[in-house]
Design a protein around this nucleic acid. Structure first.
Lengths: 139, 139
DNA sequence: GAAAAATCTGCAACTGAGTTGCAGATCCTG
DNA sequence: CAGGATCTGCAACTCAGTTGCAGATTTTTC
């Protein structure tokens, strides 16, 4: 059923010159399918894949190092990972978290200009924006 | 020596209608003196105050609830706390972290416009900006 | 100002995300 | 398909932050 996703995942791994291991293919598929940030446990439990948490973390590390995935944000001391597409070179889309229900959403259609650091000597390479408020369901 | 800071701390607590306990006065003093974000262990070890970590966390919670302090950012799965002044109602100053040496600095002179959420139903109440790059020493 | 009520504080034990070492399994290249 | 390079899973660990509870402080009441 998700053959095309698996193919896409394998292709991404080939491009990045990474071993096409079961775990990497599975995790990329899960992230492609989810279309948003996921925690380690959400990935490990997804569908029929049963991956050890150590494997999930190490796999995400290698995918992040290769630039395929990145740590989107931390919530409740837990990292959420997502595919690194839809990101410009130095800025990803903002993430909105509802302070009432806790749901977090990617605001892919919102963007802010890069900050300007006036102090001398700083080299700004990346900017991250978190938004907080009420989601439509809780407002 | 830090009599004025202690007085200021006590005054802040009175204003916020909180008990003037030793721990609260001490922690406010430390944060006033530091002038930037601190971790729990940095606060606990500051000068002659020897506070239990549970006390530090609970005290910071109560100060945060009263609006005197807030969680500035998380680094290495650890919260950094700072005084809540210098913050506008819905946005605090950005924090810059050097990807090389790990140092984090408050960029009080940098500001970004608030994001505009185009999707209906969202109420945006707070925006947080993290910056990454190289500090003058590492650039 | 002392007693009562309301709140803190510290200790010990716990929680849970993320990490490490290592042996055995998989993947790729020649 | 053999052999080296690289993963994977298990068990045990780390460490920031939390919880329950008994005893200590602070504030309020009279």
């Amino acid at each position: 059923m998700s053959q095309p996703l698996e193919d896409k995942a394998r292709h991404m791994l080939k491009e990045a010159r990474l071993y096409c291991t079961e775990a990497r293919v599975a995790i990329l598929q899960v992230l492609l399918e989810a279309g948003g940030p996921l925690r380690q446990d959400q990935i490990a439990r997804w569908e029929s894949h049963k991956l050890n948490k150590v494997t999930v973390y190490r796999t995400l590390d290698s995918l992040a190092e290769a630039g395929l995935v990145h740590r989107a944000f931390m919530q409740n001391r837990t990292w959420h990972f997502e595919l690194a597409d839809h990101c410009s070179e130095n800025q990803c889309h903002p993430h909105f978290t509802c302070t009432n229900c806790g749901v977090t959403r990617c605001m892919t259609d919102v963007s802010l200009p890069m900050a300007k650091i006036t102090q001398k000597g700083y080299i700004l390479s990346r900017q991250q924006v978190r938004l907080e408020g009420l989601c439509p369901a809780c407002a």
